[in-house]
């Protein structure tokens, strides 16, 4: 954050008490909800490190639930998140883990949506309300949620990255950041995380799917 805005100093507007333990947690839940993509039915949260240690007093649990229901970090309804989740028929529960995590403010979110699809997400609150999603379905990723993000699962064959970036360029999508990941050598699953200035629409996804045969799954956040 080199080039500060005045609103980095006077702001953000947020629901208290903590930018990392409440606002960041709400944002983690919110981004998780967008990754899940559908109404969640059952969600299990495992909190690690400082989240587990001081999360109760900071309302980290309520913020995560609120986020998973799609509330923003400044939503005053965060306080009543348990009740609102009950009313919405979403089953939530928590493990306050004493296991060590790499980052002190880490949460694992295991969700089952209304269609029975299961998603697991690991993320961390990195300060000032900012977050980083580090794992989706046990695959390493780096998603900040600051930009529209496209996650592409593809066969690990030559030329996929240039195919995808060419199609995105033709669609007028400007790539801000791009990272590639894979699970060892050979075709064990490879991923691209593409953060762009403008969002990738469902129509654009269909075009990518048609023009890039090595791509077999796409997720938009």
């Amino acid at each position: 954050m080199e080039n500060f805005s005045v609103f980095d100093i006077i702001g953000p507007r947020m629901t208290g008490p903590s930018s990392s333990h409440t606002a960041g947690a709400a944002r983690l839940g919110y981004i998780a909800r967008r990754i899940i993509g559908a109404e969640p039915a059952r969600v299990h949260f495992t909190l690690y490190g400082s989240f587990a240690e001081t999360g109760r007093g900071h309302g980290t649990d309520k913020a995560l639930i609120a986020g998973i229901m799609g509330f923003m970090p400044d939503d005053p309804r965060i306080r009543s998140a348990y009740k609102l989740a009950r009313d919405a028929g979403i089953v939530v529960d928590f493990t306050w883990s004493e296991e060590h995590a790499e980052h002190p403010n880490t949460v694992m979110i295991e969700a089952e949506d209304v269609n029975g699809v299961e998603t697991s997400i690991v993320g961390r609150s990195v300060g000032g309300g900012n977050i980083l999603i580090t794992e989706i379905n046990h695959l390493e990723v780096e998603v900040t949620g600051d930009y529209p993000t496209l996650i592409i699962e593809h066969h690990d064959v030559p030329g996929v990255i240039s195919d995808v970036s060419r199609v995105l360029a033709q669609l007028g999508v400007n790539i801000a950041y791009m990272k590639v990941f894979r699970h060892g050598r050979g075709d064990n699953g490879a991923f691209m995380c593409i953060e762009s200035d403008n969002p990738v629409t469902p129509e654009m996804q269909a075009i990518i799917g048609r023009l890039c045969p090595a791509v077999h799954n796409m997720m938009v956040i």
């Binding site: 006077i10 208290g16 008490p17 930018s19 400044d74 005053p76 965060i78 306080r79």
Partner: peptide, 12 residues
């Protein structure tokens, strides 16, 4: 502290 809405200035 009551989980109300505030503006961080510069922090919560």
């Amino acid at each position: 502290a009551s989980m109300g809405r505030i503006v961080a200035a510069p922090t919560a």
